[in-house]
Amino acid sequence: MSEQLNTSDKKPEFWRWQENCWADESKDWRSAKAITVGIDVGSVSSQCVVVADGELFAYNSMRTGNNSPDSAKNAFKGVTEKTGLTLNDVHMVVGTGYGRVNVPFSHKAITEIACHARGANYMGGNKVRTILDMGGQDCKAIHCDDKGKVTNFLMNDKCAAGTGRGMEVISDLMQIPIAELGPRSFEVDQEPEAVSSVCVVFAKSEALGLLKAGYTKNKVIAAYCQAMAERVVSLLERIGVEEGFFITGGIAKNPGVVKRIEKLLGIKAMDTKIDSQIAGALGAALFANTLVQKQGPLAPIVA
């Protein structure tokens, strides 16, 4: 018999993922010659990354609010509170992501495609060649060279299928915390067929239909993870996949999707100890660091 959905008045937010703020406590930013900041304002999440002398020093990853400037400010504020760093201490700020032109204190805006490649190059090393960025509301396949420079890219921003938002919808529908979806997708007797629809809206109704037909929640999640994997693999196959495969974005934390992508491609994704969600902001901060080396520091822009 299928599991019953919770119908109580209190509505927990199962989709709400863990926000993170981190700083390298073994380092003191005051001794750094160049401090640069990357701000990635995405459609679902926003990140601020601080790079000190070309090395990751601190970051804050949080949910995007209802306007881009405030999201950028809040992301930076988290780092400020954690490290004591202020805008006056920063030599350059680069904005990226969907809201990159609305970062009020950025000196330059660079596309998230270039920034993810640069960030992945830092996180995975110079062997990274193919990057899959599974963002909140779009998905990008990127090829880069050994320096993290983009050589080919493809973006799907027309549909939310295969994105973080799609996974949030399923999390809420199944009433299972989003962090548990991946592990639970493997707790099935037999791997189910992928849900047939590529559309989040139709996948939702199809998932409900499967529950009514007697599928367990775990089996429905497995079917959805498989559909998501198939969706992004078709995007990747269009530009081709080379060894040195790296996944960025929030979905990289979902083993249910990552393992299925690896299985479909026959390639294992590279591991990293750094939060995959900060790749864009990290790339932006690294671009800023390069610009500081070339042009010198810039005065802060007061928002």
Partner: peptide
Amino acid sequence: MIANYGYKDGSGEYYI
């Protein structure tokens, strides 16, 4: 760099 603009939907792949 090869930049692909467009999309894929139920009716096909449309990239320039």
